[in-house]
Simulated scan of single mutants.
Amino acid sequence: MIPILPYSKMKVKIYESQSGNFTGMTDLAIKRKFDGSPECAIGYGDTIEEALEDTILYFNKMLSQDGFTELTEDDISYAEWSDF
């Protein structure tokens, strides 16, 4: 992520559902090209590792779909720090 993100970092929070499945969510939202709305990457898995991997893969997919090779401050927004 170093060459892509302005601050070279992104946090991923993993939640566990009551059924034992896991969901990952990034603290960084990309302002999507098609509507300008910020969207966080979300991923799912049966384990923490699977949810983390799926979240990162979806983040990279969003970058690819929107044609980003590098993000600037204008392209992103961060979740409230206390949420992470």
Rank of each mutant, 00 (worst) to 15 (best):
14 I>A: 06
44 Y>I: 10
39 E>G: 07
12 V>W: 07
42 I>G: 00
3 P>E: 02
49 E>Y: 05
23 T>F: 10
31 K>M: 10
53 E>A: 11
35 D>C: 07
44 Y>P: 01
28 L>S: 10
4 I>P: 00
7 Y>S: 10
57 L>D: 06
34 F>P: 00
7 Y>I: 10
13 K>W: 12
9 K>H: 11
74 D>Y: 14
1 M>A: 13
54 D>A: 13
50 E>M: 09
59 F>E: 06
42 I>T: 12
81 W>Y: 14
13 K>P: 02
48 I>L: 09
81 W>K: 15
24 G>M: 01
9 K>Y: 08
57 L>Y: 12
80 E>R: 09
34 F>N: 11
30 I>V: 12
76 I>C: 05
38 P>L: 09
52 L>M: 12
20 G>I: 04
63 L>V: 04
35 D>V: 13
81 W>N: 14
62 M>I: 13
46 D>N: 15
46 D>G: 04
40 C>V: 05
55 T>H: 03
38 P>R: 14
38 P>W: 08
55 T>S: 09
53 E>Q: 10
28 L>C: 12
54 D>Y: 06
35 D>A: 08
43 G>Y: 07
47 T>I: 02
21 N>Y: 05
18 Q>M: 12
9 K>M: 12
54 D>Q: 02
43 G>D: 07
63 L>N: 01
82 S>C: 11
37 S>M: 15
55 T>P: 04
84 F>N: 00
